[in-house]
Simulated scan of single mutants.
Amino acid sequence: MIKILLTLFFVGCLGNSGQSVGQFYTSNYCTCEQLQYQSDCTSMGPQCTWSDNSCSTLDCTKVTDAKACAANLKCMWTQNSSGESSCKFFTFCSQFSGSSQLQCLNISNNCPFTDGTKCGSSNQLYPCSHFTAQQYCQGYISQDGVCMWTDGTGCRAAQDCTLLNQQQCITAPKGCKYTENKCSQLLCTDLTSQESCTYVMDVIYKGYYQLCSWNSTTGKCANAQNYGGLGQGNCYQQTMGTARWVSTSAGGECLSCYAQTLFALIVALFIIMI
Rank of each mutant, 00 (worst) to 15 (best):
D190H: 10
T132S: 14
L163W: 06
T179N: 15
C188T: 08
L262M: 09
T192L: 14
T57Y: 04
Q143T: 13
Y126N: 10
V267E: 02
K177R: 15
W50H: 03
T261K: 03
K182R: 14
C75D: 02
S108C: 12
C212A: 07
Q19W: 07
F9E: 11
T117F: 13
S51R: 12
F9K: 12
N72P: 10
I266K: 04
D202M: 13
I272M: 10
F9M: 12
Q225V: 08
F92K: 09
F89A: 15
N72S: 10
T132N: 15
P46D: 14
N106V: 07
D40Y: 00
I274T: 10
Q47K: 14
C212P: 04
T7R: 14
T150P: 06
W245K: 03
N16W: 13
A133C: 12
C128A: 10
Q103T: 12
A133G: 09
N215V: 10
T242M: 13
E253T: 05
C254L: 01
C111Q: 11
T239H: 00
T179V: 14
A259W: 05
S56T: 12
G207W: 00
V200S: 02
G15H: 08
N110Y: 07
D52A: 15
Y199K: 05
I266L: 04
Q166P: 00
L125I: 08
D151L: 13
G207M: 04
I141T: 07
N106E: 12
L164V: 01
T189Q: 09
S97I: 09
L164E: 06
S81V: 08
S122Y: 15
G83I: 09
S99Q: 03
G219F: 12
Q166S: 06
S99N: 14
Q101A: 10
G233Y: 01
C93W: 04
G116P: 09
T42Q: 07
I141C: 01
D52P: 04
Q194A: 11
Q19R: 01
C41N: 04
F10T: 02
T242S: 08
A157N: 02
I141G: 00
Y209N: 02
T31N: 10
Y136P: 05
K220D: 14
A268M: 03
G139A: 15
S256P: 01
T218G: 15
S56M: 05
I107D: 02
C197Q: 04
L8I: 10
Y37W: 13
G231A: 08
S247E: 14
Q124E: 13
L105H: 08
N226C: 06
T114L: 01
L211N: 04
S213Q: 13
C111P: 05
D52K: 11
K74T: 09
S94K: 13
P173D: 05
G241P: 03
C13V: 12
L105Y: 01
Q166R: 09
N72Y: 03
C128L: 13
